[in-house]
Design a protein around this nucleic acid. Structure first.
Lengths: 147, 147
DNA sequence: TATGATAATGATAACTATTATCAGTTAGTT
DNA sequence: AACTAACTGATAATAGTTATCATTATCATA
């Protein structure tokens, strides 16, 4: 009886551990952290934690659809909480000078129409099943321009 | 006299060397190569070449606007010749299963309108000077679905 | 055409981000 | 309480890239 409950609750027997909870908490406060940045943050709460655990759990959370993983111009991967509500759907402006990342959610409505049409045509034409899309703008942010 | 000619010809005194020529040639034949893949290819023509030279020149060519550098889901960077003519403007479908990259150029007209509008508004609102954009679709390609 | 200046190269060491291994720990189940 | 499997932290290993440095190649001028 409990067994079924448990199984039901978390699909394939994973455990909701402290490192996982901590990571998610951190990403509710700050976005676009890389693995090492996230590692620093968790360490403040739990100094015992190892890097490997952070990497493993960033993978874990990404696979489970809790985090999004991005690779902007940088070598290192960056993460953010997945936006479950459509209202939060957004894309990114990336500053090529300082690396700053800005979210924007303007145009989501207009974009959605186009994206839907594209997904339809592309899947028909290329037999490609589209799961997600990323629209990135690269350029120079205000601060860097002012300098 | 010669001096002026020379200076004029190649802005800040770079030299159009064999490794650079070879790399560009390779990318006219094949796209989306990573540094190590490109290295293998140039080596066939010039076995003396070193990896460092390849990395350096991929940077060089990217900075000079001759190549585009991308980072798809993968850690490694991939390159393609920059499309100078508008007709070649395209984006990418990336298979999350096998890593295959497909170019597509459908919707470029419709997209352009939206992108222009976005660039305008985003630059006004965020003071961000946009230099380029990338639109990537992630999903599963036909071959992988059929398996 | 010799020369001096400097751009570019190749070998290799160093570095950064990430992944694999493994023994020990923890949590959930019986 | 005992068993099992998930998870952890330490650490070694790997992959991709960058830095260093001595040598070579190229061009502009003497």
């Amino acid at each position: 009886m409990n067994r079924h409950r448990y199984r039901k609750k978390n699909g394939d027997n994973f455990r909701w551990t402290n490192p996982r909870r901590d990571l998610v908490n951190i990403f509710t406060k700050e976005e676009h952290l890389s693995a090492d940045e996230a590692y620093m943050k968790v360490k403040q709460k739990n100094p015992e934690i190892g890097v490997a655990t952070v990497y493993r759990n960033l993978d874990f959370l990404t696979e489970r659809g809790i985090l999004n993983r991005f690779r902007f111009g940088d070598v290192k991967a960056r993460y953010e909480l997945r936006d479950l509500e459509k209202e939060n759907h957004h894309h990114h402006l990336i500053c090529e000078s300082c690396g700053k990342i800005i979210n924007y959610s303007e145009f989501v409505q207009r974009e959605k129409k186009l994206i839907n049409a594209m997904e339809k045509e592309l899947s028909e034409k290329h037999g490609f099943q589209i799961n997600s899309h990323q629209l990135h703008f690269y350029g120079i942010c205000k601060d860097c321009r002012d300098k």
